[in-house]
Write a protein that binds this DNA or RNA. Sequence first.
DNA 1: TCCATGCATGATTATATTTAGATATTGAGA
DNA 2: TCTCAATATCTAAATATAATCATGCATGGA
Lengths: 110, 110
Amino acid sequence: MEEAILKKKVTLFNALAHPLRLKILLKLRRGSCCVCEIIPFVGSEQSNVSHHLAILRNANIVRSKKRGLEVWYEVIDPVIFELIDRADACIMEDLRTSRKMLEELAKQES
Amino acid sequence: MEEAILKKKVTLFNALAHPLRLKILLKLRRGSCCVCEIIPFVGSEQSNVSHHLAILRNANIVRSKKRGLEVWYEVIDPVIFELIDRADACIMEDLRTSRKMLEELAKQES
DNA sequence: TCCATGCATGATTATATTTAGATATTGAGA
DNA sequence: TCTCAATATCTAAATATAATCATGCATGGA
């Protein structure tokens, strides 16, 4: 694996490894919007949201443009949502396995 | 989004957000192996590798079992590789876009 | 039983990340 | 021009993460 690609992959996964940033992307999935809409959606300080938006920008996941006083954000490439969905699939599979194990434990106890 | 799922997703992405851990998974992709094979592959201290393996274990990405003195690791669910591949796709798309922008810049300059 | 091997765990230090508050910047309107 | 609104950036403190070194633990062989 090329070192530069590896680094980019770490940056990408790292950008997705925070609840606030995942919430921001969840909001942007419904369409682009301004920061003033993101702030109440994620429920955090303005400066904190701005900081996390910068991390998503640096990871090339979102881009912004000014519209008067507001700054509007949008996801650059929706493929990112496929990535997130794949993560969901991993988690769901994991949960299914856990449930099966619990069921078998329960069977053995009865 | 349910808070528990969100947390699991963060744990998953976080586990993938480190070059050493991605290298470990790259190794395990070729089949399960013992720690003594992983250490030279990733090129780091034994204790450090062990710590990172623990992070992958806690994220439910890999599991281990003893075989005599050795401990063998394997990926629990290969779906994780689809996730990683999807990340690659995101990065490649990003690189393609960057290249296009550079080409257009070059055109304008000439 | 004693020792060596393979690995995990704990402690420590250095570094990075997160958060909140303060300040700076940009644009719109009075 | 002055002021306000929306957002970014800076700073400091708290917390988390990473790497290394030391130690502990289980297993197999002498």
